[in-house]
Design a binder for these strands. Structure first.
Lengths: 211, 211
DNA sequence: CTATTAATGGCACTCAGTGTCATAATATGT
DNA sequence: ACATATTATGACACTGAGTGCCATTAATAG
């Protein structure tokens, strides 16, 4: 919920729930703008060729402050996934009790990803960077941890079987992420269709005997 | 094939196929021994607390040579997965044509992992290190790339459908790896049973409507 | 004995990431 | 208005991973 906390840049303003009037020195730093600028640098010069010093210089802040907002270089690329996680939360909570079919579930997952589709250009750029870099690619499960753990928690309560929920969540995670990367690479054009097709294939894995 | 190339340490002697008489300076360095020693250090002092300098010192070689054998620190932990990949290769090649059921396939995967079970103590130690460290954990798909790509290639030729093969390979990869980690963590005792059960659960995902 | 080939070590370098501390800028209380 | 608590920022130094370069060493082939 709290979809209003999602700003137009696709960033996330943090915990806006009980916002006390601001104390202390206010920040003049805009993380979303810095991330976007960094992405642009990465695209033109290559991820490895751009150092954190360079990003800080470009953003007009000190190197130390940059690391305060982005504890790891990869966070610059992963920044902006919070809206997707927030949306999934809302969608799962809205699912009626007792009517969980596989297709309903996968539709919910696909629906939550529409937050990505919104800023299609930037998202594609980020995903392409991720796909092109083994280090970044490997961070998918970690950096989107909220998304995946929320999905698994939901499935655990709905299925009653923690083991089965875990397998299902893991499989969905891997297949969805792979579909996103293929979409970003340009192999597929329709965002939702790509993810939906991948999940449909996953659901039919048990019927392998036909070969 | 070439299972004889697997030495008693669980290491892999590289390409022994057309071994010319050795030229140049011979190496006095034993990568498997170094990896094992490093694992021991990691276990007692923690992965982060042990620098590559320390490992090199312990092994009695220069830091530079250490990096020549293990280009990344994580490779010390992942070392020894080659036998598993070799075994999978042999098992897949031996599968009779035209009789590929899901259970036959998963049995083959489980069977290939017996190379891990052999040195149970060391394998558990390594997997525990991996499980306890997000960086290492994320490298699973990359470091075992040969294993997974071989599986996917096999499925592609057998199924005829590249897309379906990819989804299947991805799902198996994730679920198997997760099962291995749970086994290493001590949550499960029977190695094969753990992996088999996870794969069986995966095969039955499509039937979700019963809840 | 010489040339060739390959392994190793020493050194310096880049860059990611962290700890510490001084300083600046804001709001609150008097 | 003024002192104080609170927070953001920057400056600096440090650790450790990983790389490039080159001299050196140890083997074999002729």
């Amino acid at each position: 919920m709290t979809l209003s906390a999602i700003n137009s840049q696709g960033g996330y303003d943090g915990d806006m729930s009980d916002s006390q009037p601001a104390r202390g020195r206010p920040s003049h730093i805009d993380p979303a703008a810095i991330a976007d600028a960094a992405i642009a640098l990465f695209q033109t010069h290559g991820y490895d060729a751009i150092s954190m010093d360079r990003v800080a210089e470009e953003a007009g802040i000190s190197r130390r402050s940059l690391f305060r907002y982005f504890p790891a270089k990869g966070d610059l690329v992963w920044h902006g996934s919070a809206p997707v996680e927030a949306r999934l939360h809302g969608i799962l909570a809205a699912l009626p009790v007792g009517t969980l079919t596989y297709s309903v579930l996968t539709d919910a997952v696909v629906d939550s990803l529409h937050a990505l589709d919104h800023r299609e250009g930037v998202t594609r750029a980020r995903l392409r960077l991720i796909a092109g870099h083994a280090d970044l690619l490997a961070q998918g499960p970690t950096k989107l941890a909220t998304f995946w753990t929320e999905l698994e928690a939901f499935l655990t309560t709905r299925l009653g079987d923690a083991h089965r929920a875990r397998v299902l969540a893991l499989a969905i995670r891997t297949v969805v992420f792979d579909a996103l990367l293929r979409w970003a690479a340009g192999e597929e054009h329709d965002f939702s269709a790509t993810v939906s097709a991948a999940l449909a294939t996953l659901g039919a894995l048990g019927t392998l005997s036909e070969c």
